[in-house]
Amino acid sequence: MIQFTLKCDRDHRFDSWFQSAAAFDKLKASGMVSCAVCGSTSVDKALMAPRVAVSRAPQDRPEPGALSTPSHPAEQALAELKKRIESQSEYVGMNFAAEARRIHAGDSPERPIYGEARPDDARKLIEEGVPVAPLPFVPGRKSN
């Protein structure tokens, strides 16, 4: 896994993880990389500082398999938001756009859902007046 600092054409900067540099290039070429702030698909790698690992004393290392706890209040809030959405909403996967339309039209029962949509599908939902919002995290099944 590799973390890149990215920048969109509106100068929004954000970090994202990719399986490899080639994976980033492939996703970018297919229009699957979008700005975390505004949704623009005009995204490039920004200048990054190298990250150097510092060896820690054995007592400072987490136990194998232990998850790290969020250290910053914003990280804690994001972790709580993710947990709440995933526990109180139905994951509809790549069917998000179609299911959101059915709910909006009254053809499917109203309920909280979350899932995945291509940026152009998300824009169409907004243009159609379907209330949607991007999530500031990747659904659990997509995380490592």
Rank of each mutant, 00 (worst) to 15 (best):
T5V: 10
K124V: 11
R102S: 09
Q88I: 04
P58L: 03
L81V: 11
F4K: 01
K82C: 06
H12C: 00
A117M: 07
R13D: 03
Q88N: 13
G129C: 08
A133C: 14
D107P: 08
D60T: 05
D121L: 12
P50H: 14
E127F: 07
P50V: 10
W17G: 14
P58A: 06
S68H: 13
L27V: 00
K28G: 02
L78C: 07
F96L: 02
A79G: 08
E90Q: 12
C38V: 04
D121E: 13
P134C: 02
P131S: 05
C38M: 01
P131C: 03
M48P: 03
A100P: 00
I2E: 04
P50Y: 09
E63W: 03
K28F: 02
Y91N: 11
R61E: 11
S55N: 09
T69K: 15
I103S: 05
R61C: 15
D121H: 15
P109L: 07
I103Y: 02
A105G: 13
F14D: 01
V130N: 08
A46G: 06
R10V: 07
K124H: 08
I103T: 00
R111G: 08
I85P: 07
L78M: 15
G31T: 04
V138T: 15
P64C: 05
V92E: 00
Q19A: 10
S71M: 14
P119Q: 01
P64S: 04
E110M: 04
V54I: 15
P139A: 06
S68V: 13
T5D: 13
A49E: 11
I113F: 06
K142H: 12
I126H: 14
L27G: 01
E116H: 05
E110Y: 07
V92F: 03
Q88C: 08
R56I: 05
V43I: 07
R101A: 06
